[in-house]
Design a protein around this nucleic acid. Structure first.
Ligand SMILES: [Zn+2]
Ligand SMILES: [Zn+2]
Ligand SMILES: [Zn+2]
Ligand SMILES: [Zn+2]
Lengths: 164, 164
DNA sequence: TCTATTGACGTTATATTATAACATCTCTAG
DNA sequence: CTAGAGATGTTATAATATAACGTCAATAGA
């Protein structure tokens, strides 16, 4: 399975690997992987949940970084821009990318119960748009694919069904 | 083509039809299609762009309705709840549904240049999730499908390519 | 090495989006 | 013709996001 996030894995390694990738990328591309950017990426990697910008900021303040919103937003923007994180539009929150440095259109499954999030890659050649967009003559540049529901654990744990 | 929004159509009829559908639905389901709710739906129908809650509010104020955010948000929530409008998460904005009262997972193509939006229906049996969700055991309840890019007009009009 | 330029970081201030809580009024059900 | 539910309006506040500016650090040329 290509889907990360609902399965247990070696999370310590997950973080170490990702940081290494980010460092290599930054060196190769002459961008600065600064302490605050590194720390924010670590925070996002700490669990497979999404963090709001102000959640991130709160942590940064405690650790002696700047205390104002732009500090968090700028670090998050850097990570998103360079493919190390994604914004979950539905939640106004950010999450580390599960497939860094691979070109992909990310898609997310968001558990409304436990807030776990899994990222999957979509095949760029199908999906809900590629036929409709072609017919309409629409040129896709970016996509947002987000599904909300119940993760495997919460389904079997008997979470209450969504009300209409 | 099932895609509405990038093609010209009888827009006056579009509005009239939709209001009639909403009225019939409301009568049948014993919910109140009140003046402010009707007016907000008309506003959303006036073009195929999305309106922010505060855009809607501004119009309502001018027309003598309440002047505070909940007035707009409550009308929009009603329309979304009953299937007459959708929220575009990427834009924090609202748009009239193009397929009211048909069960569907909406998908949107959003022109970053002229802001036109087309809604298409996704086939619930494919899409980027149905295979990944099944493999993962994730139970989908709601989906957000939004593509940003250039509409046919803006593509041929030579809009500047998106910067990386 | 020494500057010039760019980019990062921190701040203050403000903009934008959204909801909580409560009073009043209206519709609906009995 | 009431009792209850729902709709509307308000005030106040919460949550999310960006503009603008000064300072400092990294990088690139000379
Ligand atoms: Zn990703
Ligand atoms: Zn869960
Ligand atoms: Zn729709
Ligand atoms: Zn356009």
């Amino acid at each position: 399975m290509d889907t990360k996030g609902f399965a247990k894995h070696d999370h310590r390694a997950c973080i170490v690997d990702m940081i290494a990738v980010a460092e290599a990328y930054s060196a190769a591309n002459k961008v600065q992987f600064t302490p605050v950017r590194r720390r924010v990426l670590e925070l996002l990697l700490e669990d497979h949940k999404a963090l709001g910008a102000y959640d991130v900021l709160e942590r940064l303040v405690k650790e002696g970084y700047g205390s104002q919103p732009p500090v968090a937003y700028r670090a998050l923007d850097f990570l998103v821009k360079h493919g190390f994180a994604h914004k979950i539009e539905r939640l106004n929150a950010y999450i580390a990318c599960a497939h860094p440095q691979k070109i992909h259109a990310p898609a997310f499954m968001i558990c409304r119960q436990c807030k776990a999030i899994a990222e999957t890659m979509t095949t760029p050649t199908k999906g809900p748009f590629n036929q409709a967009a072609e017919e309409a003559g629409f040129q896709i540049e970016r996509t947002v694919f987000e599904a909300e529901g119940l993760c495997p654990k919460c389904v079997s744990g008997g979470a209450p069904r969504e009300v209409s």
